[in-house]
Design a protein around this nucleic acid. Sequence first.
DNA 1: CGGGGGCTTGAAACTGATCAAAACGCGTGG
DNA 2: CCACGCGTTTTGATCAGTTTCAAGCCCCCG
Lengths: 258, 258
Amino acid sequence: MPHRKLIARLQAVAGLSEQDQAKLAGMPYKLKTLDGGEYLVREGDSPTSSTVVMSGVLSRQRVISERNQISSFYIAGDMPDLHTLHLPVMDHELRSMGRSTVASVSHAYLREVMSGSPGLTQAFWRETLIHAAIYREWIENLGARPALGRIAHLLCELAVRLELVGLLDNGSFHLPFTQQDIADACGLSVVHVNRTLQELRREGLIEWRDHTVQLLDRARLEDAAEFSRQYLHALETTRSPVRNGNAGERGNKRGNVI
Amino acid sequence: MPHRKLIARLQAVAGLSEQDQAKLAGMPYKLKTLDGGEYLVREGDSPTSSTVVMSGVLSRQRVISERNQISSFYIAGDMPDLHTLHLPVMDHELRSMGRSTVASVSHAYLREVMSGSPGLTQAFWRETLIHAAIYREWIENLGARPALGRIAHLLCELAVRLELVGLLDNGSFHLPFTQQDIADACGLSVVHVNRTLQELRREGLIEWRDHTVQLLDRARLEDAAEFSRQYLHALETTRSPVRNGNAGERGNKRGNVI
DNA sequence: CGGGGGCTTGAAACTGATCAAAACGCGTGG
DNA sequence: CCACGCGTTTTGATCAGTTTCAAGCCCCCG
């Protein structure tokens, strides 16, 4: 079931007819495994296929003013370079955070399934619109929020997106990031990210150990982030009604917690 | 010729058949004039039509952490709420910067012209992809560039976009912004914007008087901004080969220069 | 002529950056 | 099994860019 997550994602986001689901399920693809840090696409490439993330996380990034700015993360079910279908040249790099697997699907085939189905075209278009909404949210994040809010917002967003594809486990999720990655995404220095994470832990909002994030008090974290999930435009909310992943207090064990 | 700029823009961005151009030209619309500061759409609205900017500038904005963050500007030919076609609820406000005029076109009609023409669907989709590319660029701008680079980049972007619809006049263009607007767009304080603009002037990069910006040395400005027009994905470049709008030195007259 | 919005300036305060170094964890090879 | 090395996290100290506060000015508009 290679495209299961993609179908689930488009389903959650736009609704799909059974026919369309079948078309997607039947798309020919090539699997690829990426190691941590490996590049899938480099700036300037003109790919002839688009890729679907199957597992793991990819980042879109580019160096600006000798800083490595990450402008987006892509998780299972996302298509980080869907737009190369219409805008052929990549102006960023796609890098794998930790190990990940992706499927590549040729533009030709994508065009074919879409030409036969307005519903699919709309679904893909809608998908790009949602990612545009995410970009806008990042603009607001970087432009207006202080460090703690920025990081909190990023975590809230990732939690919801992972939840939508079934990768949130009772408020905790796997996140193969280093603190440097957070810094690159949030426009902060590593040092400051480190201290801000400590504050998030001290406040009892999160725990973060062995590349696993635990949201201890999701409601308070979302408050700190001024987060509203609305911009992610999920059709149906699969979020469990209980907001606290694990409210059990554990004090602040120290150690390398990321 | 109400949709002239829109057609020009889509033409520049995706190419259009004569048929498609005719369809666009025939779209029924309602004209509206907006005064400076007036809101076209408020957060939470669910419009049943999309709007085309005819003249002036609109901003998309929202308050975050009691800051008013602008996430995008829209100029003649742009459709700031095209996405309400697929994502019905607006999560931002659209505000007119200075006086502007817009045409609103019903979703129903847009759907109709698109259903009959894959080319038009692609053109509109491509348009949303370009705006997504602009959002990404803003993320990088806010996340990675220092104040001077941020403002310079914003000016470079606006110059190219205005140029594409014929509103750049020998390196100068009309910009109905206050310094507060720049601050809101760039995630800076007004005070700092003021000082940074002074520096841009001192460096002989721009002049800014009476709501008119003059790029004195476009090449150096683009360097300072690390600007590359590629992300705007214009099919044909209409940029004149001469890079300096007006290199005439005038010293630094002071006064209210914005 | 008065008021207000926008621009400008100065001084002080702060958030976050930079520099530097130490500690930790982990994989590798001896 | 230990030693080494490297990447990552942590901590401390200093520095810089930017914000905030406060006030003054200019110009337009009523």
